[in-house]
Design a protein around this nucleic acid. Structure first.
Lengths: 264, 264
DNA sequence: AGACAGCGTTCCGTATATGGAACGATCAGT
DNA sequence: ACTGATCGTTCCATATACGGAACGCTGTCT
């Protein structure tokens, strides 16, 4: 008798069993086309995904018929169909629109780039970005992912989790550092967590990109679990201690106000 | 011998043959979950998509493993994974960022809601929106779709197509009107096209929503084909003839400048 | 308690989706 | 012209993904 742990009357699906390989391949094809900057043909996709050519062909033609892909003589490319999915995802909670509205009203951060992101496993995903007019040398794309341990919002959100859950998320091998400043390992990270918890906001001091400093604060859901985070980005020359303290207070305040807007 | 028309050395895939049903079902499940405002379970999905329960289960579990869906006791829901796809789609051309940058610099439209959209078959898909602080009573969601014949950007883009291609796109039964103003049929639309072509911009006079007026101009690609369109939205009380003429000229100018930024 | 209806999950025979091989067309190099 | 490489597409035997039926469980009725 296999070990079927059951939770709340709901069995656990057996993750070892290969189910619906075509569905997995569909996703891999979409991921590949999204990662590529130009259209890709059947052979090229088959080669780099290691899927038989005729299978790739069958799936791609089906995706063209459903309107998810465009097909032209140079190959397949993403259509606007996927915007439905992301639009639905982003508008499920009013988080993004509240973020934009709040920043439009509050002029104190007008000169800084401010981002909204959420935690997904050990990564942060950027949901929204309000750019400043000043260039930062780094652009946050919506949908972009970064290792949570190096980003300000990631640090802020991880800090709000119980230690056990945090260790679970970070149990994979430590992500290769981006810069010399990137926090070395889990032990050093746990030391930092105490600081972030105490002061309410977390700091990325050039851990993503040399010369860029970000201050991040967590947005908490009903049970106190972090559902998202906001961060303000600046160059290291702007990040004087006094300014950091001021701005840290401001994003904590904004994050708190967003938390109170009862986000799903 | 079947009728295999061939174009440019590339055979046409036979669209009658059912290929990769699991891929099509994957897309339908994603569409359904995106359309639903709350998580959906296996049985619910199976019922409303008319797919066997065990097949839905297999696909959904696969999608959870690939990280496209989240699973919790209340059902499946979209994860942030799809943001990768839309982010890649939106950033393939620099259209969206140019749109934002241009509007940020040019203050003349600061008090109006401005949208960017593209044509997909007989619909327009909204790619970006710069909201004004004044409420409009209508919110443009990124990824939202509207019938092209009723929207200002759709009218503007369709006007730039050769008549034959336009008739092809609009050959399906005419979309049910949204308001009393919605253009009645293809014949009336073709009459309007002459006007839009002559004046350079198209007008939606309350055809989407009573009391909302939009002026749309086409953004043209290298060969003069419309690749996108921008529109400015206002209430009908703001839309006095003089204002319309002024604003129409401004969006034509902006659309022309975006066209010159050689958009893919 | 008992019956029932709903859920998520598993099982296994079989209909069928798959993939290796072949096809025709194109293009580059000779 | 003639290769040969590579492209998108088709074909069909067969490995396998699918789906109807059953299972265990929870909650809600009499």
């Amino acid at each position: 008798m296999p070990d079927k742990t059951q939770t709340n009357g709901r069995h656990m699906a057996d993750p070892t069993k290969r189910r619906a390989p075509a569905a997995e391949r569909t996703i891999r094809i979409l991921d590949q086309l999204a990662a590529s900057s130009s259209p890709m043909g059947v052979s090229e996709l088959a080669r780099c995904l290691d899927i038989p050519k005729s299978s790739v062909f069958g799936i791609c033609e089906t995706l063209v018929e459903t309107g998810v892909l465009h097909s032209d003589p140079t190959g397949y490319s993403m259509s606007a169909h996927c915007l439905r999915w992301s639009g639905a995802y982003l508008s499920r909670s009013s988080l993004v629109s509240e973020f934009q509205r709040t920043l439009a009203r509050d002029g104190r951060l007008a000169n800084y780039t401010v981002t909204l992101s959420t935690l997904e496993n050990d990564q942060v995903v950027y949901l929204a970005c309000r750019n400043s007019d000043k260039p930062l040398g780094f652009t946050f794309q919506i949908g972009m992912r970064l290792p949570a341990v190096y980003s300000a919002t990631g640090k802020a959100m991880l800090s709000q989790l119980p230690q056990e859950q945090r260790r679970m998320l970070l149990s994979a091998p430590w992500h290769a550092p981006f810069t010399d400043n990137s926090v070395r390992d889990l032990e050093a990270f746990e030391e930092d967590v105490k600081v972030w918890r105490a002061q309410g906001y977390a700091v990325d001091n050039g851990e993503i990109r040399e010369g860029m400093v970000c201050l991040g604060a967590p947005i908490l859901g009903p049970e106190g679990t972090p559902v998202a985070g906001i961060a303000i980005s600046m160059t290291s020359t702007e990040a004087r201690d006094a300014a950091k303290k001021d701005l840290g207070g401001i994003i904590c305040e904004i994050a708190g106000s967003l938390s109170r807007h009862h986000l799903g």
